[in-house]
Computed example of a mutant assay.
Amino acid sequence: MTNEKVATEPNDLGKFFIEHANAGDVDGLVALYEPNAVLEFPPGHVATGHAEIRKVYEQFVAAAPVLSPGRQHPALVSGDLALTASTLTSGEVTVEIARRQGDGSWLWVVDQPSVVS
C-alpha cells in the first residue's frame, strides 16, 4: 500500500495513523514519520529511524488490532513544530511532536503513544 495522503494539518497524522493501522498498512504508518524520528513503543522500547519503526509496526499490524479514534486534542503549534495528543478509548494518552516539512506537510518527529492510563 502507499501513502498518497499528506498531512496538511498536524492532527491529520493521528487520523491517518488509525486508517493505516486498521488497513495493516505498514508503509503508510512509517510514512507518517521523519526518517530519523523516535518512537517509544511498546512502552520502554525506543525505535529510531524508519527501519526500526518499520519493525515495530510490522509486529503491531501482525496482531491485527482494530483501532477506534479517540478524542484528538487541538494541536499546539509554534512555528514549524506542533504538539499533538489524543485520549484513546482505553483512557491512554498519546503525545507526539510533529514538524512542518519543506512542502508544508507535517510528519512526526517524536511519538510517545502510551503516556498515561
Rank of each mutant, 00 (worst) to 15 (best):
L81A: 04
I53E: 01
P43Y: 11
V56L: 05
E4V: 07
F41K: 11
A47F: 00
D12K: 07
A47P: 00
L88A: 12
R71T: 13
D103H: 02
V26P: 03
V26C: 00
D103C: 00
S86W: 13
V46M: 07
E9L: 08
W106C: 03
A64I: 13
G24N: 12
R99Y: 01
W108N: 05
P74V: 12
A31F: 00
Y57A: 01
G91A: 02
L88P: 03
G49H: 09
V116C: 07
L83F: 09
A31H: 00
T87E: 12
V109K: 00
E4F: 05
M1T: 07
A51D: 14
K5C: 00
L76F: 14
G91I: 02
G104P: 07
D111M: 02
A37Q: 03
S105D: 07
R99E: 03
F16E: 14
T8E: 13
P35Y: 07
G104W: 11
T94G: 06
E92Q: 14
H50S: 03
F41R: 11
P43T: 14
S105W: 08
V115E: 03
V38R: 10
G28D: 06
E96R: 06
G24I: 11
S114F: 04
P43F: 07
Y57H: 11
E9I: 06
L76M: 15
E9T: 10
I53L: 00
L13T: 05
N22D: 13
L83C: 04
R54S: 01
P113H: 04
Q59I: 06
L81I: 08
S68K: 15
H20E: 15
H45F: 10
G24L: 08
F16A: 09
H20A: 09
E96V: 01
V93T: 13
L88I: 08
V109G: 00
R54V: 01
R99V: 04
A23Y: 12
T84R: 12
A23E: 14
V110C: 04
L29A: 02
Y57P: 02
V77C: 06
S105C: 03
N22Y: 10
N22H: 11
S105M: 09
L13C: 02
H73P: 02
F60W: 11
E19T: 05
P113S: 03
P42W: 07
A75E: 12
F60I: 07
V38I: 12
G91E: 04
Y33F: 08
P10D: 11
A63E: 15
L67W: 04
M1K: 13
L76W: 15
F60D: 09
A75Y: 14
S86D: 15
R71G: 02
V66S: 14
F41A: 08
E96Y: 01
N22E: 13
Q72G: 00
V56T: 15
Q59M: 09
G79Q: 05
H73Q: 15
F60G: 03
V95N: 12
A85P: 00
Q72C: 01
D80N: 10
V38E: 08
I18S: 03
Y33W: 11
D111I: 01
H20P: 05
S90Q: 11
N3M: 01
Q72V: 07
G49S: 10
V109N: 00
P35M: 05
F41I: 05
T8S: 09
V66L: 13
P10R: 14
A64L: 13
E96D: 05
D12R: 11
E52V: 03
P74W: 15
D111R: 05
E9K: 13
N36C: 01
I97W: 00
I53H: 01
E92S: 12
